[in-house]
Amino acid sequence: MDSIIFDLDGTLWDSREQVVEAWNKAIGKSEFPIEKVEKADLTRTMGLVIPEIARVLFPQLTEREQKQLMDACGIEELALLKEKGAVLYDGLEEVLRALSNTYKLFIVSNCRDGYIEAFFHSHGLSHYFTDYENPGRTGLPKGENIKLIVKRNGLQAPLYVGDTIGDQKAAHHAGVRFAYASYGFGQSDHHDYKLTTFKDLLQFA
């Protein structure tokens, strides 16, 4: 193993409370007669890309309206997360520091452009990571974004760490091993490693 690629939500942090706050602020400002979202709504859509989340949560809106609302939600979301951050999993920086002594670290997440940067900015963690990617920048699914990271950084034996079956499938699509973060939001039925806490990654340090 020469590198570790991380998912973000449910793997490195839990931003549900902050995202709910931001999205409901945007919904309150919008012209659409829809109910506010709840934390459970975000939990059940974790791992989906933004257009898929919009279709699940706002099926009564047209595709154009969904995009309009999600763009507004994104503005509020990124501003709040950049300023306040979110809940980091226990021991996160300690583990990243230890791992970065041996491996190159990366992030590939199904998020909007600017979301990973907000994570970096709010918690001062960018120096631990060599590169990152998301569909907000590339328009590509997670498996292809993992391949991009592998190719442009010349990785030989990466490990992908994520918390959903979508992460599992993306890792397998990219031909990399998968560590299941069972403390996160989703499930996995086929993984190389199972992590019960983020600190379990210290086994690789």
Rank of each mutant, 00 (worst) to 15 (best):
M1H: 12
S3E: 12
F6K: 08
D7S: 10
D7R: 01
L8S: 02
W13Y: 11
S15G: 14
R16G: 06
E17S: 08
W23F: 15
A26P: 08
S30R: 00
V37E: 02
E38I: 11
T43A: 14
T45S: 14
I50V: 15
P51Q: 01
F58R: 09
P59N: 01
L61P: 04
E63I: 09
Q66S: 06
L69M: 07
L69S: 02
D71A: 13
G74D: 01
I75H: 13
L81D: 01
K82W: 00
E83K: 15
K84F: 05
A86P: 04
A86Y: 05
Y89I: 06
L96F: 08
A98M: 11
L99D: 00
S100H: 06
N101D: 13
L105V: 07
F106N: 05
V108N: 04
C111I: 05
R112P: 10
R112F: 08
G114K: 04
S122C: 06
Y128Q: 09
Y132D: 09
Y132C: 10
E133R: 10
N134P: 12
G136L: 07
R137H: 09
R137M: 12
G143F: 00
N145M: 08
L148C: 08
G154D: 03
A157N: 15
A157H: 11
P158Y: 08
P158V: 10
L159R: 05
L159K: 03
Y160G: 06
Y160V: 09
V161W: 01
G166K: 15
Q168P: 00
A170V: 03
H172L: 14
G175A: 10
V176E: 02
A181D: 07
S182P: 00
Y183K: 02
G184F: 04
F185S: 01
T196I: 07
L201P: 03
